[in-house]
Design a protein around this nucleic acid. Structure first.
Lengths: 236, 236
DNA sequence: CGTCAGCTTGATTACTTTCAATTGTTGTGG
DNA sequence: CCACAACAATTGAAAGTAATCAAGCTGACG
């Protein structure tokens, strides 16, 4: 609701240490920090929309985000997820095209806005940041291609099982070590797997019957991840 | 069949001018050129296989290549195409992972092999090459995501129409200005659209009946590309 | 001329979507 | 706190789409 920018510290104080910025010098960190804007986003709010003119990139200080695109029929397709420490909208760095996807906050989040120019300036003098950025692109490309082949060749059941695994590897479990720490609607899960809400509901029920998962409302419990792995046909 | 490396000139003499190397200084071009190996590949031959340890990247001096991955069921999925002037296997630059896809030559081609180390050395001193590489990654990522949403949400007919458009935009027409300059088997077209050979045949027949295309054996004629565009629901 | 790979067609089956109706949940204002 | 509205979840039945299986055909090539 209210902007709580004051809650977010300077980049030098930020404890997201294992992200793309870890190679920056203190001066460079300061440079980024001076030009950043920080915002609170309420669950469901959009950070940017597909087609928007891009005015920079974003860094998730704390939170969970989904990136999605709309098909011609208006159906949503989830492309990727991002979480604390990840950056968003970095592809706009390399082309002056608008954002290619819509970023929606999945739970209340704090997200910083960074200047595109500062970032590219730093890339020029710090080849490690360039390198990190390329690795990031490369990683995203790899998962996009994997996602593609999965959707193209797998049954709905396999794709749902895989979607649940993706949620696990991205966001992890709650303290109990078996409940997905993210709660999505059936329709959102459908948008990951590329199917409909109804089919998702039925398929989740089947997975439940096969003891691969347990359902408690929106809460999804995965007692043994290897059961899901077997069903999805994923072996990595 | 026989190695015809002598047919390929030094990089400085190469007339693929609009590719990623156009920003290199003469010295850098020479550096790449000295370390390159050139080979002739016969139609159907593989340049590298998914899972192979990567030992460098490739530049297509002249030719056509498809990049594909295998699903768990053994079914092939075409990820991307590449043609004269494009580079292949560049993702191995950023990670020491094996090649993520298999590159297969679609018609007799001349392809150069470049040293990974030289490329990265040049990237360090030439930020424009880094930039170009990032743009390339970014572009590939964009098309992969577009391909994903298309396969996830479109009918087979739309996907086949789109596959034909992809072949057009990538490889263009013959001199007659309407015949696709690439001839693939029905099964290969199926592997682009993520469907089966039989369905591809039936769908091509339907497109033919609707006067979107004409078929002469493996030759596919597209008298009016906008008809296909309309069918595929692609508007870019 | 035989063979093999690719192409084609038909019939059947399986899977998924769509549509429709109902129930459950959540947040809000009176 | 309750009632209501809006949204989410569920279930069933019917329709549609595409895969699978089976068989015959075609054309290139040694």
């Amino acid at each position: 609701m209210s902007k709580t920018a004051t809650k977010i510290p300077a980049c030098s104080e930020c404890d997201n240490k294992d992200n793309i910025f870890c190679t920056l010098t203190p001066e460079q960190t300061e440079m980024i920090s001076e030009n950043k804007g920080s915002n609170f986003y309420k669950k469901g709010q959009a950070v940017f929309y597909e087609g928007n003119q891009s005015h920079g990139l974003f860094c998730i200080h704390k939170g969970k985000v989904k990136l999605s695109k709309l098909g011609e029929n208006g159906k949503e397709q989830v492309i990727r997820f991002a979480k604390t420490g990840n950056i968003l909208g970095y592809r706009s760095l390399f082309s002056n095209e608008p954002y290619q996807a819509t970023a929606t906050v999945l739970e209340d989040s704090y997200i910083c806005h960074l200047s595109k120019e500062k970032y590219t300036d730093i890339m020029k003098e710090n080849s490690k940041l360039s390198w990190k950025t390329m690795q990031l692109l490369s990683k995203d490309l790899k998962s996009a291609e994997q996602h593609l082949i999965n959707i193209a060749q797998k049954t709905v059941k396999e794709r749902i099982a895989e979607a649940l695994q993706l949620l696990h590897t991205t966001f992890g479990f709650l303290e109990d070590g078996k409940t997905l720490s993210i709660m999505l609607t059936r329709s959102e899960i459908a948008d990951i797997a590329g199917t409909t809400t109804e089919t998702t509901i039925r398929t989740l029920a089947i997975l439940c019957k096969e003891n691969a998962i347990e359902l408690e409302g929106k809460r999804i419990i995965i007692p043994n991840i290897s059961v899901l792995t077997k069903i999805s046909g994923l072996y990595d």
